[in-house]
Amino acid sequence: MLSILAADETSGVPENPILPATYELFWGAIAFAILYLLIRYVLLPPVQRVMNDREATIQADLDAADAAKAKMASADSELADQLAGVRAEAASIIEAARGEAEAERERLIGRAEREVTAMQEVTDSELAREREEALSSLRPQVAQLAVGAASRIVNRQISVDDALPVINRQLDNPN
């Protein structure tokens, strides 16, 4: 403000407050021309280059992040596939093992059943043989008793040898 108030000198002061003085036009044109040329050819290009480089770097980083993300997704998918494969393989192994176990169980049961049957047959044959032996061992005594009883009933002596075929037939076919 003081500088305004101090501008009371009249020498070199433009007469018209609106129309510009020639020297103002001259320096304005010179200053703007220099500024434009400097910005156009010297000052702006390196700034734009740095900004473009930064943008390219950021874009490259973003692209790399996207690529890493895609790679991670791919690895995830691959892992999921592998897990599914492993699970399927494990299931098939378990199924096979279960089948084998079932077969083994069947085989063992069959063998046990066969052994039981064989043992039962042996036991039955032994029982039959022992029964047969018991019957054979008892048969003379039974014949003696039967003949004795019959002799008493008919009141005559019956020979054991004569009666033996009848007794044996009765013993063999009790009905």
Binding site: A7, S11, G12, A21, T22, Y23, I30, A31
Partner: peptide
């Protein structure tokens, strides 16, 4: 006095310098 400024040098020559020229 509000908009007119005396020249620092050059008087009224086309290359004369005043406050407006200096600010430019």
């Amino acid at each position: 006095n509000l908009v007119g400024w005396p020249t620092y040098f050059g008087d009224d020559a086309f290359w004369a310098m005043n406050k407006i020229g200096l600010i430019s």
